[in-house]
Simulated scan of single mutants.
Amino acid sequence: MILEVAILQVKADQTHDFEQSFQQASQIISSMKGYISHELQHCLEVDNQYILLVRWETLADHTEGFRGSAAYQEWKKLLHHYYDPFPAVHHYQIVESSQSQ
């Protein structure tokens, strides 16, 4: 399993609209090959900051499958205009976990 992590800085006056758009975008990402689950969390200290955590079966499922798909173009239309600056996305692999896998 691969964990995709993105810190999202949403334009301050657009957080409500972003959350609504993200609900639509969730339908897109959850239908992709290799998708396992995702979480969008709102930061308690920084009002317009979110963290997006997406679990994928493989790195290629995200970087090639999702990003190379027509569905990703729709994802971009729904979400990318909310970010300032555009987020860096990193991928992680479990080293140790107290949760069953």
Rank of each mutant, 00 (worst) to 15 (best):
Ile2Lys: 11
Glu4His: 08
Glu4Ala: 08
Glu4Pro: 06
Val5Ala: 10
Val5His: 13
Ile7Cys: 08
Gln9Pro: 05
Lys11Val: 11
Asp13Met: 08
Asp13Val: 11
His16Asp: 14
Asp17Thr: 12
Asp17Tyr: 10
Phe18Ser: 06
Gln23His: 11
Gln24Lys: 15
Gln24Trp: 06
Ala25Lys: 05
Ala25Ile: 07
Ser26Val: 05
Gln27Asp: 13
Gln27His: 14
Ile29Gln: 01
Ser30Val: 02
Met32Arg: 13
Met32Gln: 15
Tyr35Gly: 00
Tyr35Lys: 07
Tyr35Phe: 13
Ile36Gly: 00
Ile36Ser: 05
Ile36Leu: 09
Ser37His: 09
His38Cys: 09
Glu39Cys: 10
Glu39Gln: 13
Glu39His: 11
His42Asn: 09
Leu44Ala: 13
Leu44Asp: 12
Asp47Trp: 08
Gln49Phe: 03
Tyr50Pro: 01
Tyr50Ser: 04
Tyr50Ala: 00
Leu53Thr: 08
Val54Glu: 06
Arg55Ile: 08
Thr58Phe: 05
Thr58Ser: 09
Thr58Ile: 03
Leu59Thr: 09
Leu59Cys: 08
His62Asn: 06
Thr63Pro: 03
Thr63Ile: 09
Gly65Glu: 05
Phe66Glu: 07
Arg67Leu: 08
Gly68Val: 02
Ser69Asp: 01
Ser69Glu: 02
Ala71Lys: 04
Tyr72Asn: 08
Gln73Asp: 09
Lys77Phe: 01
Leu78Phe: 06
Leu79Glu: 04
His80Glu: 10
His81Gln: 09
His81Ile: 07
Tyr83Cys: 04
Phe86Cys: 06
Pro87Asn: 03
Pro87Ser: 04
Pro87Met: 01
Pro87Gln: 00
His90Pro: 07
Tyr92His: 09
Tyr92Gln: 07
Gln93Cys: 11
Val95Phe: 10
Glu96Gly: 12
Gln99Lys: 15
